[in-house]
């Protein structure tokens, strides 16, 4: 087993562990704890991106998600001042059906993967590529120029929408 494989198992285990702690934390129901574990999940996922040679995306993941999105979450959590969640009784029937549904989805995923038809090109492994800033940027500004521009308009629309939504009265 090479060093890279070991690193994969390390980061994958960390990602899944922190992901579990985001969704079902046995120690705390506080949304802040979940947000903090979401930061850790995203950071360990950036490690997986580095292992996949997607260096630019790893940096963007840390900057945008851990840096901006989570800060937004924390702002809103503090703004809302949500009280410590008292242990509300979960409806057992609802929980069981939910877990069963998720297990069914997971079963479908794993069944598909076990078929082994991943649609890979035959020579794919022979041509490993680097996802650095330069090749990605070149692709972004040539082949994907139109989606890129549309995305900037989308960000503008989202910004205007947020300002409108957060006004005092929604009229």
């Amino acid at each position: 087993m090479t060093m890279q494989d070991l690193m994969f198992y390390f980061f994958a285990a960390l990602t899944l562990l922190f992901g579990v702690l985001v969704v079902v934390n046995p120690f705390s129901r506080n949304p802040i704890t979940s947000a903090m574990f979401l930061v850790l999940t995203i950071a360990s996922m950036a490690g997986l991106f580095v292992l996949l040679h997607a260096f630019f995306l790893a940096a963007v993941q840390v900057l945008v998600y851990a840096g901006a999105v989570i800060v937004l979450f924390l702002f809103v959590i503090m703004l809302l001042d949500v009280k410590e969640e008292e242990r509300r009784k979960l409806k057992l029937a609802g929980l069981i059906t939910g877990v069963a549904a998720v297990a069914a989805v997971l079963g479908i995923f794993l069944k598909v993967f076990s078929l082994g038809r991943t649609g890979l090109a035959a020579n794919a492994a022979a041509a490993p590529l680097e996802g650095g800033t330069a090749p990605l940027g070149k692709l972004l500004f040539t082949e994907y120029l139109l989606p890129f521009e549309i995305l900037s308009v989308l960000l503008l629309v989202a910004m205007v929408g947020v300002i409108l939504l957060s006004k005092k009265d929604l009229r």
């Binding site: 990602t15 899944l16 992901g19 579990v20 985001v22 969704v23 079902v24 979960l90 929980l95 939910g98 877990v99 549904a101 998720v102 297990a103 989805v105 997971l106 995923f109 794993l110 993967f113």
Partner: peptide, 13 residues
Amino acid sequence: ALLFCLGLLGVIA
């Protein structure tokens, strides 16, 4: 897939 199902469970539960 595991991570996706974890998120789905969170949304449902």
